[in-house]
Design a protein around this nucleic acid. Sequence first.
DNA 1: GGCTAATAGTTAGGGACCTATCGATTTGGA
DNA 2: TCCAAATCGATAGGTCCCTAACTATTAGCC
Lengths: 169, 169
Amino acid sequence: MLFLRDLPRKEALRVLADYFPGLDLDAVEATLALLTAAQDLLEAHEAQIQSYGLSRGRFSVLMLLNRSPKGEASPSDLAKGAKVTRATITGLLDGLEKEGLVERIPHEEDRRRLRVRLTPKGRKSLGRMLPKHVSRVTSLVAPLDKKEMKTLTRLLDKVVEGLHGRAKK
Amino acid sequence: MLFLRDLPRKEALRVLADYFPGLDLDAVEATLALLTAAQDLLEAHEAQIQSYGLSRGRFSVLMLLNRSPKGEASPSDLAKGAKVTRATITGLLDGLEKEGLVERIPHEEDRRRLRVRLTPKGRKSLGRMLPKHVSRVTSLVAPLDKKEMKTLTRLLDKVVEGLHGRAKK
DNA sequence: GGCTAATAGTTAGGGACCTATCGATTTGGA
DNA sequence: TCCAAATCGATAGGTCCCTAACTATTAGCC
């Protein structure tokens, strides 16, 4: 999907330098590294989740419910938490409910609302995969030593901040 | 979508530390930074592309054609280059062809094959957006200085390498 | 109190991408 | 040479997510 994803890094750079003389090649290389790493990481993460038989969205919903007070939340809350639309939550809940991981309960005071709750089965299911998930996902950065991890965190935060700053203006 | 995407970083860490005592919190923080940065970056990149009225996939196809010898490639080549399936390429080409950016030409020697080619309109279209695209995408790493860019590139390469290494075994 | 606004969740329809399969064609080993 | 296997692009059908619009209900203001 990405930019020059298929070319070896060095060649991609050469091509770009030809097209756009005066380009900052270090910046281009960092960008390429960033975008390709982003792609690869998210793919690995998603593959991880799919190995539990869940989609990203469904996994997010379970995670959100798991640490809500009383293991409950409204569909709207879930939408905010999982960063998807309410319409999408409807679909995710349909699936999770059919598999018995989650249940929809009418709200006593407001008949527009629902309370979504993990079933015991849902809770057990999560409990089974969570430890493995945390350790596997964390091992993504295993090739780095402590100091490198901190540096990486700092640099990425800087980049992301710039992103948000730009979005605002 | 991500892991504890909605919580402030510090709180997310506290929660995890509670659940899984003995966890390497620096590693977790680096992972969180990586995954959230990855998400944000790809979104920014995609938004960029959509501002030209193209989807990721279609943009990839145009880019691939643009730097193929003679601006031509087979659907299969495009599938490899864009890292999607041949079935997906069929759909992307349908769209691009309808907009007149691309044309399908029968292959003279092998009647199973096609040659896909940028039309003049497609070439002009790309020429208009490419310079802006390169400069905008490159500016993603603008918050970093030269040395930081190189460090980031190095660390990300390390992480990605680890990823591939793991996939193999 | 009654009517307009806003809010909650769902439905309808669309886009991008996937896997599995198909029909046509070409290749290559017996 | 001929026939099974491989390859090419297209099609069918599924998943995930989106936007827009709809229904039911509640809140707020005159």
